[in-house]
Design a protein around this nucleic acid. Structure first.
Lengths: 277, 277
DNA sequence: CAGTGGTCTAGACCACACT
DNA sequence: GTGTGGTCTAGACCACTGC
């Protein structure tokens, strides 16, 4: 549907003024099935949508190169500049990574560079790299039925199967993060505690490899809280120690929520870092 | 210095290949005074630098329109496309705002739209707009000498004069934020408590108007803490209530730090919201 | 060396906002 | 209508990577 036969006219250049534009069918996707607003959509946005479609249908896997700009321009019958602008936006959204001289690559959480793309907790002294990777302890991993609030967050129905995991992350031997993770049971059928513990590298990279689920963006809600007795024990802190509560909703393509996390962060040795602009 | 006589050659188009490039003086700013790396700098980056220079020297004031792309292209002797790319980056950094059909405007904190650009605290229920603007209570505003840590943050020397203010922000009548603000005494000479209390709208807008200081970006460090007795009283919460500690360093152009804030946020009715990608 | 992304130009036309 | 930013094209050349 999206391949050879490009869904838009080859853009009869130059003399557009004389032809009354392609008011025929197969309009450039700008008509939203009789939507009230004409909703003008630039060509490069449509191209972006087509690339996105290929991305989410796995035409290219994480870490792989997508076709060159020239190839894509030929496939979609548009100029290289238009493809470039489409890819520019995808790159700005971190869906794709450009590397001069080499190509454009599907983003992945398995890259060396930034170990934990979504983790904003930084050690007060030193660097995230100096303290090395986190030590994971899986306390629990089982299939349960979604509670009302978990279901709402993940766009499921209460009672639907979900995978729930609880774990502790330690840095330099110090337990620092205690978190619960909920995943849709459908997409994560067969996830085991061993899998969560055994994989080297970011958990999100394991999700990509083993389940084909790519987390693309996330939203977090932060609060200061006091832990209950069990939580304090899990982190090895005295009860009464204030902790940073971080609720994260992570999304795949098309804003589909695929993971809910509720974490408690120690902030006596680390802090949550954020950039505003 | 930056005006009529553009500091780069008019780009002798097409036949660049024959001429061995302008190896003369007045090089296109790409030579960093004998830097080890040739450090190639694209033209649009240089244009961006020139526009930035005009911006920080007040050639155009916040809220005003900068010259049109065509005008700037003529001034700098480059194509409109090159100016466009320069402005694109400035817009991406929120230094400038594009409005189709109208022009490109210098960003300001005084705009209607987003009341508090840097404040990420959101009411749990409803919208930031539903609860209206914050009620400010200035507890203190005086000139003091910078302590060691304040001086380090603001790139001053310990003992240098700074303005220190303490205030409470209330939403819907409920005190929610207690914060201390430190500003370089130099740039904020004459700032009074009345001024901080009386101005309608964001404090950063007042900084622009009255002191010509434009905050362009900021970094925050978040922690969960317990307030001391005075702090708890200031917010009207029981002692032992965990609070979100937010330390913010705000910068003007060129990464010059101009404000340090240490805030305590109540997170029982609000939460700190963050987007990751 | 060829191939890739990155820069730059020049020109045409479109969508939007004023007047 | 005029002027602004926004889109699209076509072609040339540059910088980087790897064969």
């Amino acid at each position: 549907m999206l391949d050879s036969g490009a869904p838009h006219p080859p853009v009869s250049d130059q003399d557009m003024s004389s032809t009354p534009a392609s008011a025929t069918d197969a309009a450039p996707a700008t008509s939203g099935a009789g939507s009230p607003t004409p909703a003008f959509s630039p060509l490069y946005q449509q191209i972006k949508g087509l690339i996105l479609h290929s991305l989410q249908h796995g035409e290219w896997k994480p870490g792989e190169a997508i076709p060159s700009e020239i190839e894509l321009a030929a496939r979609f019958r548009v100029s290289q500049g238009t493809v470039r602008k489409a890819i520019d936006e995808l790159a700005a959204e971190n869906l794709v990574t450009r590397r001069q001289g080499k190509g454009t690559f599907v983003s992945t959480h398995a890259e060396r560079q930034v170990q934990y793309r979504f983790l904003k907790l930084i050690p007060d002294a030193g660097d995230a790299r100096t303290e090395g990777p986190a030590q994971r302890t899986i306390l629990e991993c089982r299939r349960v039925r979604a509670s009302a609030d978990v279901a709402r967050a993940l766009a499921l129905r209460a009672g639907d199967p979900v995978v729930q995991a609880r774990r502790v992350l330690a840095f330099a031997g110090v337990p620092t993060i205690l978190e619960d993770i909920w995943l849709p049971g459908q997409a994560f059928r067969g996830l085991t505690a061993e899998q969560m513990a055994g994989y080297q590298g970011p958990t999100y990279a394991m999700f990509e490899l083993d389940f084909g689920v790519r987390m693309v963006r996330a939203e977090e809600k932060l609060r200061a809280v006091l832990p209950d007795a069990a939580q304090a024990e899990g982190l090895g802190v005295p009860p009464g120690t204030p902790l940073l509560s971080v609720e994260r909703l992570a999304y795949t393509y098309n804003d589909v929520p695929m993971e809910l996390r509720r974490g408690l962060y120690r902030t006596d040795t680390h802090h949550y870092h954020n950039e505003l602009s």
